Amino acid sequence: MIFNRQQQSLLLEGKEYTSEDIRRLIAGGAEAHSPAYWDLYLFLNKWFDDSPVITVHTSGSTGTPKELVVRKEQMMQSARLTCEFLNLRKGDSALLCMNLRYIGAMMMVVRSLVAGLNLIVRPASGHPLAGIKAPLRFVAMVPLQVYNTLQVPEEKERLKQTGILIIGGGAVDEALETEMKHLPTVVYSTYGMTETLSHIALRRLNGVSASEHYYPFSSVKLSLSSENTLVIDAPLVCDETLQTNDIARIYPDGSFMILGRKDNVINSGGIKIQAEEMERLLRPFIPVPFVITSVPDRRLGQAVTLLLEGQLGTKEIENKLQEIFEPYYRPRYILSTDDIPQTGNGKINRVECRILAKQLVATSKRGEYEGGQEN
Rank of each mutant, 00 (worst) to 15 (best):
R5W: 01
Q6E: 13
Q8I: 08
S9Y: 09
L11D: 11
K15P: 04
L25C: 01
A32E: 00
S34M: 00
A36R: 00
A36H: 01
L40T: 02
F48M: 09
D49C: 11
P52F: 03
T58H: 06
S59E: 11
G60W: 02
V69N: 13
E73T: 14
R80W: 07
E84W: 05
S93L: 08
L96F: 15
M98A: 10
N99F: 01
V109K: 06
L113C: 07
L119M: 12
I120F: 11
R122S: 02
S125D: 04
G131A: 07
P135R: 11
L136D: 10
A140N: 11
L144I: 15
V146L: 15
Y147N: 11
Q151F: 02
V152G: 03
V152Q: 10
I166A: 06
G169D: 03
L176V: 03
E177R: 13
E179W: 05
M180V: 07
K181R: 15
T185F: 05
Y188F: 14
S189M: 07
S189P: 04
Y191R: 11
S198T: 13
S198P: 04
S198C: 15
S198Q: 10
I200S: 05
I200N: 10
S209I: 03
A210E: 07
S211P: 03
P216H: 12
P216L: 04
P216T: 12
S218G: 04
S219D: 10
V220Y: 03
K221P: 02
I232Q: 09
T241Y: 10
L242P: 01
D246K: 01
I250V: 14
G254M: 09
G260N: 05
R261E: 02
N267L: 06
N267C: 05
K272E: 00
Q274M: 14
A275L: 04
E279F: 05
R280E: 15
L281W: 13
L281N: 14
F290Y: 08
T293C: 06
D297V: 04
L300K: 12
G301N: 07
G301H: 06
L306C: 11
E309T: 01
N319F: 02
E323C: 07
F325H: 13
F325M: 13
R330W: 03
I334D: 07
S336I: 05
D338A: 08
D339R: 12
D339T: 12
T343G: 09
R350D: 08
V351Y: 12
T363R: 08
K365R: 08
E368P: 04
Y369H: 12
G371K: 10
G372V: 07
